[in-house]
Design a protein around this nucleic acid. Structure first.
Ligand code: SF4
Ligand code: SF4
Lengths: 144, 144
DNA sequence: TTTTAATCAGATAAAAATATCTGATTTAAC
DNA sequence: GTTAAATCAGATATTTTTATCTGATTAAAA
């Protein structure tokens, strides 16, 4: 189903981007996020909880509660979300599924794949969600 | 669990590489492959069946039966195995999981990711299993 | 202070992926 | 021809991932 990120991670990124695009407003309810992203409220709630406990977003309980970014959008990198939800496995494990390969006698796939995944890691680490929010907002609007 | 290929696909690649490394012998039984790769015989059998029906390997039934490459190892590309088992989704679907994105108003992730996945596709298409077999055989031996 | 609307936390359900079982079929060797 | 060893095909079981439900807690507003 998912390409390289888990579904949870995909939706986590989408949700954080949506929060970023709603700058200026205090908090956004999980219901609004669910409606905008066209996914069940309960599922995104679970994901938002994970992101809250890892410090990327913050939540306000009670009536008029909701979620907001925990820090400035130019301080949040995509890699933060990926690591919080999916962990670091994709950046370290063998792409062919061999257990405990030390890459002492690397197979020919190793070099190319290492380079690709390193570039991916670099991209995710460099890009802040600040750079993304407006374009993705348009994307979300096109879902309506 | 798996990075970008499904577990089936990982094991499919491993199995084809093992067949390639056993050049000269007529057929290899699924049991031998299972033992060498340290995975259940029944699971690899299912995968070998899929690869047989997609024409990458061929099988010989009955006593003394087993599997062998269907063509010269320099004619089999890694992409053949990936497409046969996992299909083309990873090369075309949105990495953020947005449905039907036409990339008319691409988000900033699009360009970088497209490039990375295109390079992956290119690598898988260019590399034949002939290039891989010896190194991977060493890898398999190190599992013992 | 009571009501209401929201998150939170943990349990549960459903779906998908992964793995295993069973029996039929095929073919080599006796 | 019979037996034995292998694939083949489809059903079933297990595990993991994805999704949903339920009830408790929190805090704003009446
Ligand atoms: S060398 Fe090959 S088998 Fe080893 S970790 Fe790298 S890709 Fe995997
Ligand atoms: S533009 Fe962005 S949202 Fe659209 S397919 Fe590309 S990565 Fe996905």
């Amino acid at each position: 189903m998912a390409i390289i990120f888990s579904r949870k991670c995909e939706l986590g990124i989408q949700a954080v981007l949506y929060l970023a695009s709603a700058e200026g407003r205090e908090v956004i309810s999980s219901e609004e996020i669910a409606n905008e992203l066209k996914i069940p409220k309960e599922f995104i709630s679970k994901i938002l909880q994970e992101l809250t406990s890892s410090g990327i977003i913050s939540s306000k309980k009670g009536k008029m509660g909701g979620f907001s970014l925990a820090k400035n959008p130019n301080k949040i990198h995509l890699i933060d979300i990926v690591l919080a939800i999916d962990g670091a496995d994709i950046f370290s494990k063998c792409v062919l599924g061999f257990p405990n390969c030390s890459s002492e006698t690397p197979c020919p796939m190793h070099a190319t794949w290492s380079q690709l995944i390193d570039e991916t890691f670099k991209m995710l680490s460099e890009e802040t969600i600040d750079n993304y929010k407006n374009k993705v907002l348009r994307k979300i609007e096109s879902l309506k």
